[in-house]
């Protein structure tokens, strides 16, 4: 009989007490228990970045984190970055640049961009490509995504 674990985790500023099965991933916890379906399941093995969330300030693939590891941790998902009624400036930049086509990779792209700008406020084009290399997009071909990131940088100045 597998032992479940009691965890306390903060997601988008809200505290949750949850009883989790060890094999539940953070991605499953977010989508299935908390109904935060903005975080997407793509490959489910750390290749595509669609499930990117920010865990204690660092962008990670939530499919490769166990839910139980989120105990005493802070998680930010795409649902948690808006500013009141307004979109986050990075979200606006993605809209304004037409960097969204099917939209499946977009939450991950935006959270990775946020983690990058929190760490490197003025990244070079090389920095951007290196930082976003773990987020795959199969629609736009990346140039509009990079435009969006550059627009977000411009707005943040």
């Amino acid at each position: 009989m597998v032992k479940k674990h009691q965890i306390r985790t903060t997601v988008n500023g809200e505290e949750y007490d949850l009883l989790v099965d060890p094999k539940k991933t953070l991605l499953q916890l977010l989508r299935e228990n908390l109904d935060l379906t903005g975080t997407k399941e793509g490959c489910d093995e750390g290749e595509c970045g669609a499930c990117s969330v920010i865990l204690d300030g660092k962008v990670v693939n939530s499919c490769l984190v166990l839910a139980v590891e989120a105990d005493n941790a802070e998680v930010t998902t795409i649902e948690g970055i808006h500013r009141g009624e307004d979109l986050h400036p990075i979200q606006k930049s993605f809209v304004d640049s037409g960097a969204v086509q099917c939209g499946f990779c977009t939450p991950g792209m935006i959270l990775t961009t946020k983690a990058m700008l929190d760490e490197i406020p003025d990244p070079s084009e090389e920095d951007i490509k290196h930082y976003l290399e773990g987020n795959l997009c199969r629609c736009t071909g990346y140039s509009k995504i990079i435009d969006a990131v550059n627009l977000a940088i411009k707005h943040s100045k």
Partner: peptide, 12 residues
């Protein structure tokens, strides 16, 4: 180190 995986992987 920088050539391994992606930022998401390198963070973990």
């Amino acid at each position: 180190a920088s050539s391994l995986g992606s930022i998401q992987i390198r963070n973990r």
